[in-house]
Design a protein around this nucleic acid. Sequence first.
RNA 1: CGGGGUGUAGCGUAGCCCGGUUAUCGCGCCACGUUUGGGACGUGGAGGCCGCAGGUUCGAAUCCUGCCACCCCGACCA
Length: 490
Amino acid sequence: MSKKLTKRSEDYSKWYNELVVKADLAENSGVRGMMVIKPYGYAIWEKVQAELDKRFKETGHENAYFPLLIPKSYFTKEASHVEGFAKECAVVTHYRLKTADDGSIIVDEKAKLEEELIIRPTSETIIWDSYRKWIQSYRDLPIKINQWANVMRWEMRTRLFLRTAEFLWQEGHTAHATKEEALEEAQLMHNLYADFLQDFMAIPVIKGEKTENERFGGALNTFTIEALMQDGKALQAGTSHFLGQNFAKAFDVKFTTNEGKQNYVWATSWGVTTRLIGALVMTHSDDQGLVLPPNLAPIQVVIVPIYRNDEQLDAITKVVNKMIIAFKEKNISVKFDNRTTYKPGFKFAEYELKGVPLRIAIGPKDLENGTVELARRDTLTKEFVEQDNLLTKVSNLLVEIQNNLYKKALNFRNEHITKVNSFEEFKRVLENKGGFIAAHWDGTIATEKEIKKLTKATIRCILLDTENEEGKCVLTGAVSKSRVLFAKAY
RNA sequence: CGGGGUGUAGCGUAGCCCGGUUAUCGCGCCACGUUUGGGACGUGGAGGCCGCAGGUUCGAAUCCUGCCACCCCGACCA
């Protein structure tokens, strides 16, 4: 298979798809928009999982697991929640197959379920059904549970990682005695996500609140983190919802306060998905392929030997084995690619495609000089380094690359936030430059929808730390107290 | 779910309009040899229910019908 990629500037969409497939992250399964995540891609997801899980536990959360199938009736209990998901649910109607007369396998019509089961598009309903049984007293609160799971949403158009019919995620569901505590939790997780993306994945995000129109079904408030991709489109990378008492009321989850009164509990839910891998790819990668921040790279350093014969390889291997021990002591993940079946040039290109942050090449000349050639994936630069200094150099570079990738992405993002004051300007910037557009909005759903219809741009978020600035709505000219961020989004 | 398009070897494709020998080419794959500091070269070889099912015909990759999958544009969405 040719490993050459379509250029990013030529066809962004094609570049992205080829990159995901050729870097060995994932592929289309050929089954209704469902994705196969390959070992290399899954290893990155595992890094994401491990670090998030650690941070969840540090903030007092526990993991649990709830069923994949949810009785249909559970969905009808919270009206706006149903509305949000009804159109994209997979439904289980039968529980048995049989062999037909012609030998083919068919659904046994006799095995029709009395009540259909929904494959979870999200687990609020089934979890709240459990919470009703678990919560009686204020002493049972708070409950702060997270679930790692797969969910299914029957999307009409799918894209690898960004929108697949089945995806992996974590969903946190918490129950609290007071409104203040629940709001605090929603904001805590919002910040946790933002910090995680920025300091672990090197993806800068904008923190904000969703407008009523873009809110999660059943939520009173949705906090979002928005990232900017290299083609100027925004990507919602994580959300944290303040659910108020909606689900408690729908599922009748009450508790007795220390004053003996019956109250409904206050709730939050929050989640991030395998979409983060898509965000990672589209934030950092280039025409040579994937660029992985060292924190997420399954292989942080690859060592490629260069040799003409077995004696040379043996001599190189001796030196390399010592390096590997030293790297492993420092918890640096390293791979020695001593395959004899591929040439060095091929290997160089392959590890660039796969985004390995650092590459060491070592050959006969290096053995003579006591050096290695060290190449950085992020800058595509090479230098010769003394073997004696290698470990320090590599340790430092891994940190530097992590920081450099974040800075680069942050600069790009900041250069793509544009203030506009008229609708003409709005359209022009959206068309020619893309990115986030900070504009005044009159606060109505009608205007929001009209702008979307005219430009395809949506309000990504209302900034949390926005300065008050009087202005006029770009579309209607009505009074506006502050700007909001618009963008075309994935 | 509406509009448009595509499906030929692991991948990318020619052939289809206008039916007719053994289905084209490149990459990849296998063997051997020469190579090895940026995707090597030569020689030889293997690999196809031409997406699936049905129909028209003496004869179908090619024409017709249905289904499935994928891509693009809308609507929906993490």
